Simulated scan of single mutants.
Amino acid sequence: MISRLLPVLTQERRAATLAVIILFQSLCALFFIGDVIIDLQGGDGRVELHLAIEAAVAVALVAGVIFLMVELRIMLQRVASMETGLRAARGEMAALVDHFFDQWALTPSERDVALMILKGVENETIAEMRGTAPGTVRAQSAKIYAKAGVDGRAQLLSVFLEELFAQGMDTGASMSPSP
Rank of each mutant, 00 (worst) to 15 (best):
L118M: 09
M69A: 10
D102Y: 10
E128Q: 07
E12G: 00
V121H: 07
P108F: 09
A173H: 15
A173S: 08
Q11L: 08
L157H: 06
E54G: 14
L161C: 04
A139F: 11
T136A: 04
R46L: 06
G85P: 02
A139C: 03
G131F: 03
A142L: 09
E83H: 11
I37T: 12
L23K: 12
L115E: 00
V159Y: 04
L5W: 07
I37M: 14
T17G: 01
F160N: 00
A148F: 14
T171N: 15
L68K: 08
A58M: 05
Y145A: 04
R78D: 02
A15G: 01
M82I: 12
V65I: 01
F32T: 07
R130K: 13
I66Y: 05
P177S: 09
K119V: 01
V121L: 10
E162I: 06
S178V: 11
L51G: 04
L49Q: 12
F24E: 03
D98N: 10
L156F: 15
F31L: 11
D35T: 14
P134V: 02
F101H: 06
G168Q: 11
L157D: 00
A105E: 03
E128H: 11
Q77E: 10
M175H: 04
G135N: 04
I126Y: 15
N123H: 13
A154F: 02
E71Y: 14
M169W: 09
A88T: 01
A19P: 15
F31I: 11
T136N: 04
S176P: 02
D98H: 11
A60D: 08
H99E: 07
M116Y: 13
V79P: 00
V70T: 08
M1D: 08
G152S: 02
R78T: 07
A133T: 00
E92A: 08
A55K: 14
S141D: 05
I22T: 05
A139T: 12
D112A: 09
S3K: 09
L9E: 02
H99S: 12
M69T: 13
M129N: 13
I38L: 13
I22F: 01
V20N: 10
M169A: 06
K143W: 09
I74V: 13
Y145N: 03
E54Y: 15
K119C: 02
G91Q: 07
Q103P: 14
S109T: 13
H50W: 14
D35G: 09
R13V: 03
T17K: 14
L157Y: 03
A29P: 10
L6N: 05
E71S: 05
R14W: 05
E92H: 14
D102G: 07
Q11E: 11
S174W: 09
R111N: 02
P134R: 07
Q25K: 06
S141Y: 12
I21L: 04
V20L: 14
L51H: 10
T136W: 06
R90K: 07
E54M: 15
E71N: 04
Y145S: 03
A95C: 09
V113I: 15
V150S: 01
L96Y: 02
A114M: 03
L86A: 06
G45V: 07
V70W: 03
I2K: 11
V121C: 07
K143M: 05
V57F: 10
T125D: 14
E110C: 04
S26C: 01
W104A: 13
F32L: 15
A173L: 08
P7C: 01
D151A: 13
I117T: 10
I144G: 03
A60S: 12
A15C: 01
A114I: 06
